[in-house]
């Protein structure tokens, strides 16, 4: 059954987030040949429309307003609900990002629909769309379907593949004007703490440090390794509590959930709360002095040794590999 699907494009730091493309990929599966329309909300975001088309959107609808410069639930829901009213989609897919998590329940409430949050997979099976999502901090999974109303889900970044970018693809990017009014929450200030560069929750490679890193300076070799691999640096709660790094880097049950292709845990013991944030990574490497450390139980590859010896050696080896390939 063909379904018209709507996705949300998300712009951060002057670029579309990857999860915007993944949402289009998911919407394609859900659409079963129906139209996929991507909505872009913000101020001066129309320029990103073509890229969404190249990633598979059939059309892009843009809502621009000065009051949409920053995300607020009132502003973005007014914009989105106006588009939903006109487009009448049969399903919605957002990224399970800070924005998507905050906005999607309000939209679901307004539409009186169900919502499946934090999906890591979807498949069409026997007329139903079946979503898979982690529960109990990633220790179990459930498969869920929508039984009433719109198909509505948020997808966890890095899990559902985007379509191949096609530079020759063209489509309509249209603007609609929506009156944005009565914002009940106003952003007064934004304090940037998250590190520059690669977005931790979307990184393909994550190099994470724990208490074993021992100091703020101890993160330097990890940063070098991350640079070589185009990855992001993360941390365990232990390292954050010890003030070796900012809490914005924390991976775990509290903190970020990451599912990169490669996760290298350096000096991390592997407390259960940490595992909740990274155990679904595709390949896990553990580097730890303690051969009994819990992290080795979830690791695909392990090296028992001092991270301050191993990590710089790894950086050198990867450098060689990059040169040869």
């Amino acid at each position: 059954m063909a379904r018209k699907m709507l996705t949300l494009g998300e712009v951060r730091d002057g670029a579309l987030r990857n999860v915007s493309f993944e949402a289009i990929g998911a919407a394609k599966i859900a659409s079963d040949g129906g139209e996929v329309v991507c909505v872009l909300i913000g101020n001066n975001v129309k320029e990103f429309g073509q890229e969404l088309i190249q990633y598979g959107a059939d059309r892009v609808v843009v809502v621009e307003d000065e009051k949409l410069e920053q995300y607020t639930p009132d502003g973005f829901s007014q914009a989105l609900l106006a588009v939903i009213e006109t487009e009448q989609p049969e399903g919605l897919i957002f990224g399970h990002t800070a924005l998507g998590k905050d906005l999607s329940p309000k939209i679901a409430g307004k539409l009186g629909s169900g919502l499946i949050s934090d999906a890591t997979n979807l498949e069409a099976a026997g007329g139903n769309l079946v979503f898979t999502r982690p529960i109990y901090s990633g220790k179990a999974f459930e498969k869920k379907i929508i039984t009433d109303g719109l198909v509505f889900a948020t997808i966890r970044p890095n899990n559902i593949a985007p379509l191949q970018k096609d530079d020759s693809r063209t489509g309509e990017v249209s603007s609609v004007s929506v009156e944005i009014k009565d914002l009940r929450t106003i952003i007064q200030d934004v304090v940037r703490k998250a590190s520059e560069g690669v977005d931790l929750s979307e990184a393909k490679v994550v190099i994470a440090g724990g208490r074993g890193v021992k100091s703020e300076e101890g993160f330097e070799p990890l940063k070098k390794l991350a640079d070589i691999l185009g990855g992001a640096v993360g941390a365990s709660r232990g390292a954050c509590d010890a003030e070796y790094c900012d809490y914005s880097l924390q991976i775990g049950q509290t903190g970020k959930v990451v599912t990169p292709d490669l996760y290298i845990a350096c000096g991390i013991s592997g407390a259960i709360q940490h595992l909740a944030g990274m155990s679904n990574s595709k390949v896990i490497v553990a580097i730890n002095k303690d051969p009994e450390a819990n992290i080795f139980k979830v690791a695909d590859y392990g090296i028992v040794g001092d991270l301050f010896e191993v990590v710089p050696m790894l950086t050198e080896e990867f450098k060689k590999l990059k040169i040869h390939s």
Binding site: S113, G114, L115, I116, V130, I135, G138, K139, A140, F141, E142, K143, K144, I145, I146, T147, D148, G149, N280, I284, A286, P291, F296, K297, V298, A299, D300, Y301, G302, I303, V304, G305, E309, V310, M313
Partner: peptide, 26 residues
């Protein structure tokens, strides 16, 4: 009445024991 339904709950497949390397560190 719920608008979604759980049709299956399962545990992730047991991960096979990883490969802990040995020998000279380099």
């Amino acid at each position: 009445e719920a608008k979604t339904k759980t049709i299956e709950v399962y545990l992730p497949p047991q991960k096979e024991a990883g490969k802990v390397l040995s020998g000279d560190l380099s």
